[in-house]
Design a protein around this nucleic acid. Structure first.
Lengths: 233, 233
DNA sequence: CCTTCTATTGAGCGAACGATCAATAAGGGC
DNA sequence: GCCCTTATTGATCGTTCGCTCAATAGAAGG
């Protein structure tokens, strides 16, 4: 893989010894993301250090415990990669609401269809950490709630203030969302390599699901209004 | 939880000592399924034994290694719970093909929306075992392939022998399938407890997705036939 | 060149891991 | 009631885990 040309001591990639504190920390974080994504959060600090070409005690100079390193991974992969533009997209009144939904999903799925993102997300869920539920709670409140409000308005339905959003309305969006996420899961978690480009597959799924969405949404809202705003079931 | 009445030595549940070999083995398998589903496949044999109320070496009397015990779990949870009736359902010519799909998914999802089933399935995928890909390969070949063949026939389209099934056609079914699976994943893996009954949610998703499926399928097959049977992309 | 600072290492601690084996005790057949 | 079978245990092996700490070595400033 690496070239066999002799490399001067000055410009060689400083993977070995005596890095600055900040670039060593960055290297550890990046390496930890790749490593724990591959083997799971039960991966071992010694093996991580070996892959980084450093000794294991050095990890504990930069992170007091293994748990702190994993906490840093969460911040790095999920909180840091949340795109504030998503919230702007779904609130853009100059675009039809179904098109906002499409644009959000295309962009969001491209971001999360990533080896480390999906695998660490699932690993965290299995280990009982609240990261996945908190993250999906953000999607629900910051993305889907404004979208449903816009869909209500576009269909001349009562605003969420007059009639609170029902659980079934969220499920409508989570259904399409889940179909798109599942495409990435099959590849990144289950190791199934399809022949088709996953972006294209997801675009086709949206083409199939979006046209009927507003009509379905109107039926759901009508059904929910019968049983009253509180009874979402 | 348990009643406080005194229990005669004869009919008390024999959880403690001196079980018959087969009932002890069964108890270990059941306990291992529950334990590894909860903590992941990196769970420890000592903790499993503690929960079963037995000593750790006894586990190794019934299973030579921890890996063998996990292999047994795979057989018990996935191969044994595969329902041959599913293959009959999707081949039942007396029922419209979309109704066959609905019946299969309702029954299948009810079976797999199970704490142990979903969590061990995902854990196995993360650990790189080929169980998930093999299992989904069975769904693809034994369920979806016959369904697509029936959908072709019902739409007067060429049979798979004349024009092989395209990857996009499978993605159509996996899309709806994934939306339904995701409902269980959010609960069982991410720990999100929705207010609504998940069976009802999935039924509503099928109601929304199935009516347009045959028309979409015809478009996909027409598009695939242009690029020739071999080029599925 | 020498000193200072600190990134990095080697050795090692206590605990817990998967797995082994001889000793033990519970139950069935006579 | 005794014996034989075998399910079950207690003790323990070698390894590896997360983590600690004193010693080392590489770069920067004078």
């Amino acid at each position: 893989m690496a070239s066999s040309e002799p490399v001067s001591r000055k410009d060689r990639v400083p993977t070995g010894r005596r890095l600055s504190a900040e670039s060593r920390e960055r290297q550890i974080v990046e390496g930890a993301i790749a490593y724990f994504a591959e083997v799971g959060l039960d991966g071992h600090t010694r093996e991580l250090a070996r892959r980084l070409g450093i000794t294991q005690p050095l990890l504990f100079r930069y992170f007091p415990t293994k748990a702190a390193l994993i906490e840093r991974i969460y911040a790095e992969v999920y909180l840091k990669r949340w795109d504030a533009g998503w919230e702007a997209t779904v609130r853009d009144g100059s675009v039809p609401c179904l098109e906002r939904f499409r644009r959000f999903e295309i962009d969001y799925q491209r971001r999360i269809d990533d080896y480390a993102w999906l695998r660490i997300f699932v690993s965290a869920g299995l280990k009982g950490f609240d990261l996945p539920s908190r993250y999906l709670g953000m999607v629900r409140e910051r993305i889907f709630a404004p979208l449903l409000e816009a869909m209500r308005a576009e269909s001349d339905l009562p605003s969420p203030r007059a009639q609170p959003l029902a659980a079934d309305e969220f499920e409508l969006l989570f259904g399409i969302h889940g179909a798109l996420v599942y495409v990435g899961l099959r590849s990144r978690v289950y190791g199934i390599e399809g022949t088709a480009d996953r972006d294209t597959v997801r675009a086709a799924m949206l083409d199939a699901a979006l046209p009927g969405l507003l009509a379905t949404h109107r039926r759901v809202v009508a059904a929910a209004s019968f049983s009253g705003p509180a009874a979402a079931l």
